[in-house]
Every structure is written in structure tokens, then in C-alpha cells.
Amino acid sequence: MTMALSPSSPESPAGASRGKALAAAAIRLGALATFAAIMAYFALTARGFATPFNIVNVIEQSAILGILAFGMSVVIIGGGSEVQTGGIDLSLAANAGLCAAVFATATNAGLPAPMAIAATLGTGMLVGAVNGFAVVGLGILPLLATLASMNIVAGIELTLTENTVLSTSSPLLSVLSSGRFLGISALAWVLIAASVIVGLVIHRTPVGLRLYAVGGHPEAARAAGLNVGLHVWGTYVFAGLCAGLAAILIVSRLSASTPGTGELLLSILAAALLGTVFSRRFVPTVGGTVLSVIFIGFLANGFQLLHLSSYWVSGVQGALILLVVAVTSYARPQEH
């Protein structure tokens, strides 16, 4: 006999969740307000901070980190944000370093620009495809698989460059590094265009919706008929593409490929993870990632303009991450 008395008053959904939704909204606004307050502080105290020139300058400087953070965000979206088993690509920064070396080498070898670009993006995507295969095909934890590939990729970069700066130049690179359109530099345009395209795909097409489903609850996604493995694999290939794209920007900005690109990894992680607090679902979003990338950019810039020691920058970044995340996790619904 059905005496299943347990749950629920069905009319409560909005009611029960309204409090939570409000709290989440407050957090999101809180994060934005913190962001705005720090900007305002810089604007008032740092001479030249709030000038259009400076703002464009920061956006331009953020382009490389931004593109890479998109790659990381998408991997986390598709792989879930579980600490040990979730999606992550530790090889992303190293991959960008390798791609930069490939691009510089190809350009110096006299390859026409389209060929050099194809080789660069191809390298990035190949690394991504291998990562994806390791994660999806072999079932290796993403943390581990990309840790191993990070070593491989960094090693290959070093053998290619002998750990030296590979200077290079080409017409394309000078357009990218000094070209302007509507007073905004090419690098900034690339970030803007990438944000719009990735934002549209992730938030306005079925692809993005499905990626969130795959990362949020793989079994549910599978039950809905989605090919989970293909989606996850795709996120790693996309991350590789981002690495290739970022590599071209790196080379154009420095007119060279330099060792040490791998050190960007922590900043990329910070940008992608910090971005989650701007979302009511506490997942990475394109808007959130853009905001945190620019935030990180402005932070460094503000310190510079205030003539504060740059030694403080990473510490303040770390403290802010902790502050924002502590507040967020306080409001986050308890999950077991």
C-alpha cells in the first residue's frame, strides 16, 4: 500500500530557493562590489589608472592570460570541478610555450604565415587530443594525465629552443603587436573577439549546455543520450587550440618565444577558478573568467602605478582569491 508519506510541498520551489538565490546573488554582487571597490581605489589614488589608454593597455596585457583561461574554464566545465577527479589541464601553459617555440621556429624557417599558424594551432590541438585520449580513452585522472603531458611538452619545448629566446619577426607579427583598429590594439581585439565567440558558444548554443551537463553529472548526461567521452575529449582539444592561439599572441608581443611560459599555469588556474564566484551556479562561465582575468590584470597594473612593490602582487592575489572563495563557499548550498 502506498503510504509513502515523506517529502515535500510541491508549491515551494520558488519559495524555498528564493532565500538561497538571494544569498547567491548577494555573493555575486559582493564579488563584483569588491572588484569595483578596488578599481575605484586605484582610480582615485593611482595617477593615470582610469585613462582610456591605461584601460586598453591592461586589456591588451590580459589577452594571453584570457585566452588560456578560456581553455582551462572549458576543461573544468566539461570535466566538473571535483578536487581530485575533475577536469583540469596542467599542461596548458607548457603547451602554449611549446606552440610559441613551434611558431617562432616555423616563422624563422621561412614558412608562410598561414602555414606557420596552422602548424602552431595543430601542435596545440595535437597535445590537447593526446590529453583527451588519456583522460577519456585510457581513463587516467585528468590531474595525472596532464601532469605527465606537461613534463613531456615542456621537455620538447626545451629541446626545440635549447632553453634560449627565439627571436622572430614577420609582417603578421608586427600587425598583431602594433596594429590598431578604432584606437584599440590588435591584441585587445583578439581578446574581445575570443570572449564574444567563446561566450556565444558556451552560453548561447546547445554545445555549452551539454558541456555543463557532462561536467555537472556525467551519468545524467549519458542518460540524456549525450556522448560524454566525445564532449570531454573536445574540451581538451579546445584547450590545446587556446594554447596555440595564445602562443601566437605571446610571440607577437615579445617578438620571440621565451622559456618560462609554463609559469603562467597558476595564474590561469586562479583566473578560471576565481571566475566561478560570478556565477549563480558556482561553475566557470566565460563572463566570470573575463572578469577575473581583467581583475588580475588591473591589480598588477594598479600596483605598478602606485609604485608598490610587485612582490606584493601574488600575495594580494592569493589573499583575494581566498577571501572571495571563503565568502562564496559560506553561501554555497551544502553538498556531500
Binding site: L266, L269, A270, Y311, S314, V316, G318, I321, L322
Partner: peptide
């Protein structure tokens, strides 16, 4: 990760 950043600064 946050502690790592702070530690580097320190």
C-alpha cells in the same frame, strides 16, 4: 593555491 600565492609573495 591561495596559500601558494601568498607564500611566494612573503
Amino acid at each position: 593555491l591561495g596559500v601558494l600565492f601568498i607564500g611566494q609573495s612573503v
